[in-house]
Amino acid sequence: MRRAFVILVVVLFGLVFTSLVIAHNERHSLRPLAESYVKLIPQELGAPNVITGILLTYRAFDTLGEVAVLFMVAAGVGLVLGASNKRRKSSPRKVVETARLSSEIVQSGAQILAPLIAIFAAYIIMNGHRSAGGGFQGGAVIASGVLLLVLASTRYRVDLEFLSMTESAAGVLFVLTGIAGLIFAGGFLDNRMLPLGQFGAFFSAGAIPILSVLLGVKVGCELSVIIDRFRA
């Protein structure tokens, strides 16, 4: 009975989706909004990567809200798992003894890879305005490095206090940069408060590299805190 119901639901959704695919017409030109973004972002903002221009200037307020969501999730996961962590902390020695040590391959691999992952994350964050990359992606790469370290060593402790301090500082600086845009340029988080520089250069596109770094640090810290909450 239940199985028949599931098949019915999936088949009905399949029919809806099939009609969607059949009716879908691939566009041959950009929509007017997208076209103006593609034209305006390189010209007005000086950012070769249009997507970064959208994320960090035209819709930077969205990005700010999203970072707030990430912060709330880090706090929420801490709230849900906090009590059980406290119980575990009362017997830390037992946890370390019962936890299975990771193999030597993982340990050595983590030691070699962790600095490389950090450099790669910095590269992705700093090149967000010139090529593929940006704050979110680089932050996720940082968090993956932290995850590797946590997996490799049971004794590795993430410094939660340092992470939350760094994260709060990055968040405050992000908002302050936005307010600076309000004063020195056209509006909140406007990147033209700094000179745009040469198109495609490392230091160009106004405040976008600064916002990118702050976003990357903030996302990396938040995801690292979330990862640390899940450790046994």
Binding site: L33, A34, I54, R59, T63, E66, L70, L81, F230
Partner: peptide
């Protein structure tokens, strides 16, 4: 079109956050 790409970047991060909350529960 750059707008869907920008939306997906944000959606991926929010998806990760939702998954983290679900796993915590």
């Amino acid at each position: 079109d750059p707008i869907p790409s920008a939306l997906v970047v944000t959606a991926i991060v929010i998806g990760l956050a939702v998954t983290a909350v679900m796993l915590a529960y």
